[in-house]
Measured scan of single mutants.
Amino acid sequence: MASQGTKRSYEQMETDGERQNATEIRASVGKMIDGIGRFYIQMCTELKLSDYEGRLIQNSLTIERMVLSAFDERRNKYLEEHPSAGKDPKKTGGPIYKRVDRKWMRELVLYDKEEIRRIWRQANNGDDATAGLTHMMIWHSNLNDTTYQRTRALVRTGMDPRMCSLMQGSTLPRRSGAAGAAVKGVGTMVMELIRMIKRGINDRNFWRGENGRKTRSAYERMCNILKGKFQTAAQRAMMDQVRESRNPGNAEIEDLIFLARSALILRGSVAHKSCLPACVYGPAVASGYDFEKEGYSLVGIDPFKLLQNSQVYSLIRPNENPAHKSQLVWMACNSAAFEDLRVLSFIRGTKVSPRGKLSTRGVQIASNENMDAMESSTLELRSRYWAIRTRSGGNTNQQRASAGQISVQPAFSVQRNLPFDKPTIMAAFTGNTEGRTSDMRAEIIRMMEGAKPEEMSFQGRGVFELSDERAANPIVPSFDMSNEGSYFFGDNAEEYDN
C-alpha cells in the first residue's frame, strides 16, 4: 500500500510504541512475548500442572481467558453494579484439565481477579502490559475465525453469508486497541457500523446529549479505520460520505453494504499476525530463551520457528480426527482463516481442507461434555516452508469459486491468482447506482469489472525454506488448481455463540 510509510507498523501498534527502528520493534515485541511466557509459567505453578498438562491447549485457553477477564475493567465495573446470582464479580476462573488415573478430569478453578492481575503485572515488570493482553485477544479471535462461520451475524446486519472472507476479527472485544483495529476485516468494521446506525434509528437519543457526542466521535473513528483499509480513492470518498452524514440511517447502511461487497474484489488491507497460545510461549521462556534479547516478529519467520520446536497437546472428542484438529489450530496460529487453501497447503506441506470436510468441533470443551471418553493427542503445528504475512489485500483475480465463501483475504505475501467468483459478486451490483453516491458507485463498479483474471497478485513473492531466515531465496510455489480455494466452501461450520 502506498501510504505504508505514514502508518505505524503493526509491531508498533502491538507494543504501543512511538516510531521505533526494526531492532527496537523486535525487542519490544519480544518483551511482550516474554511477559506472556513468564505469566503462563507462574500460572502453571499456581495450578500445580504437570509439564504435559501445561502444554494442553484447553488449559492455555482457560488461563488466557482468566487474565483477560481480570483486566476487563468495563465488564468488571458492570458486574459490580449489576450483581447477578451466583456470579462473584471479583473472581474469575474456568475449567482446568488434569490427568488422573490414566483419565482426563475437569476441575473448575476460581481465583481472585486481583490475584491474577498481581501475577500478570509481576510477570511483566510491574506494568499492565496491555500489548500482551491484546495479543491474547487476537489469538482467540484468530481461533474463532478458523472455527466458526459468522453466517447468522452477517444475515442479521443485512449482509450476504458468502462475504465471510471479510469477517476477520469479528469476535475481537471493543477494547483491543490499535492492534485489534489493524486485524479487523472490512466486513467486521461494516458490521460494527451498521449495528451502531441501527441503534440510532431505533433509539432517538442515541446521537443526542453528552453521551451522543461520545457516540458520534466513536462512529467517526470507526469510519476512519474502515476508510484506511480501502485502497481505492472511490471507496475512500464513499467512506467520507458515510462519516460526514448528519443523521446516519438506511442510506448509510446501503452504502456500507455496497462497500463491503466491493471489497470482495477491490480488497481492503487487513493486517495478519501470528499470535500463538500462551502454552507455546511459556515452555520456550522456561527453556531459557530470551525473546527480548533475541527479538521477535509476528509477521516473519519467528512464529514458524517457534511452532517448529513446540509440543502442544489437545483434548480430542471420541469421533474427532486429531489431524483435522491440528489443521484448525495451525490455521489459527498463522492467522489464515480466509487465505486461499492452495497457498496454505503449499506452505504447510500437507493438504489443507475446507472447514466442512474437517471432523472436528471447536477447541474448547463445553462444561456439560462427558470427560470419560476424552483422549488427548499432539497437535501437528509444523510447516514445510515459511512466508511473510501481508497486510495488503493483493490485486484481484477471477477463479472458480464456491457456493460458500466467494473470495479470499490473503494472509501471506505469496504470488498467486486470487480466487473470487466474479459473476456471483457482480450480480449483486445491478441497477442500484442512484442517489448521492452514484458517481462513486459507478466508478467502483467500473474498477471491479476491469479486474483481470490473468493478473498475478504479489508478483514474484515466494515462500522460503525454514533454514532461509533472511528470506534470501524465494520459492514461487505451484498450486494444484483442481483443489478448492475457499475454506468455508459450501460450508456447515458451527455458528459462533458468545
Results as ranks from 00 to 15, higher is better:
residue 186 V to K: 06
residue 443 E to F: 03
residue 360 T to K: 07
residue 261 R to T: 07
residue 3 S to D: 00
residue 289 Y to T: 01
residue 123 A to N: 08
residue 154 L to D: 02
residue 498 N to M: 13
residue 378 T to Q: 06
residue 485 G to Q: 04
residue 102 R to C: 11
residue 376 S to C: 11
residue 330 W to V: 11
residue 329 V to D: 11
residue 455 E to I: 13
residue 483 N to F: 07
residue 33 I to T: 13
residue 213 R to T: 11
residue 146 T to L: 04
residue 3 S to M: 12
residue 477 P to Y: 01
residue 345 S to H: 10
residue 473 N to K: 07
residue 255 D to I: 08
residue 37 G to V: 14
residue 469 E to V: 10
residue 23 T to Y: 08
residue 371 M to H: 06
residue 121 R to S: 15
residue 159 M to K: 05
residue 84 S to R: 00
residue 416 R to N: 09
residue 268 G to F: 06
residue 396 T to Y: 11
residue 86 G to Q: 09
residue 183 V to H: 08
residue 348 R to H: 08
residue 103 K to M: 11
residue 226 L to R: 07
residue 92 T to N: 15
residue 380 E to M: 08
residue 248 P to V: 08
residue 91 K to F: 06
residue 498 N to T: 13
residue 17 G to F: 00
residue 322 P to N: 08
residue 185 G to E: 14
residue 181 A to P: 00
residue 180 G to L: 03
residue 355 R to H: 10
residue 149 Q to W: 11
residue 4 Q to R: 06
residue 258 F to L: 11
residue 151 T to Y: 02
residue 213 R to K: 09
residue 240 D to Q: 07
residue 265 I to K: 00
residue 199 R to L: 02
residue 173 P to V: 08
residue 152 R to L: 03
residue 225 I to H: 08
residue 442 A to P: 00
residue 413 S to Q: 07
residue 215 T to V: 11
residue 118 R to N: 01
residue 311 Q to N: 15
residue 91 K to M: 07
residue 490 G to I: 01
residue 293 K to M: 07
residue 397 N to Y: 00
residue 443 E to D: 13
residue 235 Q to W: 13
residue 466 L to I: 13
residue 490 G to Y: 06
residue 26 R to P: 01
residue 332 A to K: 12
residue 415 Q to R: 14
residue 464 F to R: 00
residue 15 T to K: 01
residue 174 R to I: 04
residue 145 D to F: 02
residue 252 E to C: 10
residue 8 R to Q: 15
residue 285 V to T: 09
residue 392 S to Q: 03
residue 217 S to T: 15
residue 442 A to C: 09
residue 271 A to L: 08
residue 95 P to D: 12
residue 484 E to Q: 01
residue 372 D to E: 15
residue 213 R to V: 09
residue 482 S to E: 10
residue 455 E to D: 12
residue 316 I to N: 13
residue 128 D to L: 12
residue 476 V to E: 14
residue 310 S to V: 11
residue 2 A to N: 00
residue 257 I to D: 00
residue 424 T to C: 08
residue 211 N to P: 09
residue 182 A to W: 10
residue 397 N to V: 10
residue 473 N to V: 04
residue 385 Y to I: 05
residue 343 V to K: 11
residue 361 R to W: 02
residue 455 E to L: 14
residue 434 E to T: 12
residue 442 A to I: 14
residue 84 S to W: 12
residue 104 W to S: 08
residue 322 P to V: 10
residue 455 E to A: 13
residue 315 L to K: 12
residue 457 S to A: 10
residue 217 S to D: 00
residue 308 Q to S: 02
residue 177 G to K: 03
residue 152 R to Y: 09
residue 115 E to T: 07
residue 496 Y to T: 02
residue 403 A to Y: 08
residue 494 E to K: 14
residue 230 F to V: 05
residue 156 R to E: 10
residue 325 K to N: 09
residue 496 Y to M: 07
residue 461 R to F: 00
residue 266 L to P: 00
residue 395 N to D: 01
residue 437 T to W: 01
residue 295 G to L: 04
residue 312 V to C: 14
residue 276 L to D: 02
residue 177 G to E: 12
residue 96 I to M: 12
residue 430 T to M: 06
residue 101 D to E: 13
residue 449 E to K: 12
residue 301 I to A: 06
residue 199 R to Q: 07
residue 151 T to V: 07
residue 216 R to F: 11
residue 78 Y to V: 11
residue 340 D to R: 03
residue 94 G to L: 08
residue 490 G to H: 06
residue 342 R to K: 14
residue 8 R to Y: 00
residue 6 T to P: 01
residue 316 I to V: 13
residue 447 M to Y: 02
residue 381 L to Q: 15
residue 151 T to F: 05
residue 258 F to Q: 11
residue 341 L to R: 05
residue 73 E to A: 09
residue 149 Q to H: 05
residue 421 D to E: 02
residue 96 I to A: 06
residue 46 E to N: 12
residue 324 H to S: 13
residue 198 K to S: 15
residue 418 L to H: 02
residue 376 S to I: 04
residue 9 S to V: 01
residue 164 C to V: 15
residue 489 F to K: 03
residue 431 G to K: 02
residue 218 A to M: 05
residue 226 L to Q: 12
residue 27 A to K: 15
residue 3 S to C: 00
residue 26 R to W: 04
residue 140 H to M: 08
residue 481 M to P: 00
residue 115 E to P: 03
residue 388 I to A: 05
residue 214 K to Y: 06
residue 312 V to T: 13
residue 452 K to G: 10
residue 86 G to M: 01
residue 237 A to G: 15
residue 396 T to Q: 08
residue 489 F to Q: 03
residue 445 I to A: 14
residue 306 L to T: 14
residue 175 R to E: 10
residue 360 T to P: 10
residue 358 L to M: 12
residue 51 D to G: 14
residue 45 T to S: 15
residue 191 M to R: 07
residue 439 D to V: 00
residue 64 E to V: 04
residue 334 N to F: 02
residue 64 E to P: 12
residue 179 A to W: 04
residue 250 N to A: 13
residue 48 K to E: 02
residue 463 V to F: 00
residue 143 L to T: 05
residue 15 T to Q: 04
residue 329 V to H: 01
residue 261 R to V: 04
residue 419 P to C: 10
residue 163 M to S: 07
residue 172 L to V: 09
residue 447 M to G: 10
residue 138 I to M: 14
residue 343 V to M: 11
residue 140 H to V: 09
residue 228 G to D: 03
residue 470 R to Y: 00
residue 239 M to I: 14
residue 279 C to P: 05
residue 246 R to V: 04
residue 411 A to H: 04
residue 52 Y to R: 07
residue 4 Q to C: 09
residue 277 P to L: 03
residue 405 Q to C: 13
residue 243 R to T: 02
residue 71 F to A: 13
residue 128 D to T: 13
residue 50 S to L: 09
residue 71 F to C: 03
residue 380 E to N: 10
residue 347 I to C: 11
residue 354 P to L: 11
residue 435 G to Y: 06
residue 384 R to P: 12
residue 64 E to L: 11
residue 319 N to K: 15
residue 359 S to E: 00
residue 146 T to C: 07
residue 207 W to N: 05
residue 290 D to I: 03
residue 293 K to W: 01
residue 144 N to M: 14
residue 389 R to D: 06
residue 480 D to A: 14
residue 79 L to E: 07
residue 439 D to G: 01
residue 108 L to G: 13
residue 317 R to C: 07
residue 158 G to S: 14
residue 24 E to K: 09
residue 265 I to R: 00
residue 429 F to L: 06
residue 242 V to C: 14
residue 93 G to F: 09
residue 190 V to L: 03
residue 175 R to L: 05
residue 392 S to V: 08
residue 86 G to F: 01
residue 358 L to Y: 07
residue 416 R to Y: 02
residue 241 Q to H: 06
residue 353 S to V: 11
residue 460 G to H: 12
residue 2 A to H: 00
residue 111 Y to Q: 09
residue 164 C to G: 02
residue 284 A to K: 15
residue 207 W to D: 09
residue 475 I to E: 00
residue 191 M to L: 15
residue 432 N to K: 13
residue 318 P to K: 08
residue 403 A to E: 05
residue 189 M to S: 08
residue 155 V to K: 07
residue 115 E to Q: 09
residue 289 Y to G: 04
residue 241 Q to C: 04
residue 176 S to Q: 05
residue 131 A to Y: 02
residue 479 F to Y: 12
residue 327 Q to Y: 03
residue 245 S to V: 04
residue 470 R to D: 04
residue 160 D to I: 08
residue 419 P to D: 00
residue 140 H to W: 08
residue 55 R to C: 12
residue 322 P to F: 09
residue 466 L to S: 01
residue 315 L to A: 08
residue 303 P to K: 08
residue 187 G to P: 12
residue 372 D to Q: 10
residue 381 L to P: 01
residue 404 G to I: 04
residue 255 D to R: 04
residue 393 G to T: 03
residue 187 G to C: 11
residue 97 Y to F: 14
residue 372 D to F: 11
residue 182 A to C: 05
residue 201 I to E: 01
residue 339 E to P: 06
residue 407 S to H: 08
residue 316 I to M: 15
residue 293 K to I: 01
residue 361 R to I: 08
residue 45 T to G: 05
residue 421 D to L: 14
residue 28 S to G: 14
residue 335 S to A: 14
residue 189 M to H: 12
residue 371 M to P: 06
residue 158 G to L: 13
residue 399 Q to N: 00
residue 85 A to C: 12
residue 397 N to S: 08
residue 401 A to M: 00
residue 298 L to G: 10
residue 371 M to K: 08
residue 274 S to T: 15
residue 7 K to G: 00
residue 165 S to R: 00
residue 140 H to F: 06
residue 309 N to R: 15
residue 451 A to E: 07
residue 54 G to I: 04
residue 274 S to I: 07
residue 116 I to L: 06
residue 152 R to A: 04
residue 409 Q to W: 13
residue 149 Q to L: 02
residue 208 R to N: 09
residue 183 V to A: 12
residue 418 L to Y: 00
residue 62 T to A: 11
residue 30 G to S: 10
residue 178 A to V: 12
residue 456 M to W: 14
residue 151 T to H: 07
residue 485 G to V: 12
residue 410 P to F: 01
residue 395 N to P: 02
residue 53 E to T: 11
residue 139 W to V: 06
residue 383 S to R: 01
residue 206 F to K: 11
residue 459 Q to A: 00
residue 414 V to N: 01
residue 52 Y to N: 13
residue 236 R to N: 06
residue 467 S to W: 03
residue 392 S to G: 12
residue 379 L to K: 03
residue 243 R to C: 03
residue 335 S to H: 05
residue 239 M to C: 13
residue 370 N to M: 09
residue 351 K to E: 07
residue 473 N to I: 09
residue 357 K to R: 10
residue 341 L to T: 14
residue 134 T to I: 03
residue 204 R to Q: 12
residue 412 F to Y: 13
residue 40 Y to V: 07
residue 391 R to F: 06
residue 235 Q to Y: 01
residue 125 N to Y: 13
residue 217 S to P: 00
residue 157 T to K: 04
residue 493 A to Y: 14
residue 131 A to E: 10
residue 286 A to V: 06
residue 69 S to T: 12
residue 194 I to W: 09
residue 262 S to W: 06
residue 3 S to G: 00
residue 236 R to M: 07
residue 205 N to T: 14
residue 293 K to N: 10
residue 137 M to T: 10
residue 135 H to P: 11
residue 135 H to I: 05
residue 309 N to E: 00
residue 218 A to H: 05
residue 39 F to Y: 13
residue 58 Q to V: 06
residue 485 G to N: 05
residue 97 Y to L: 06
residue 4 Q to L: 15
residue 115 E to F: 13
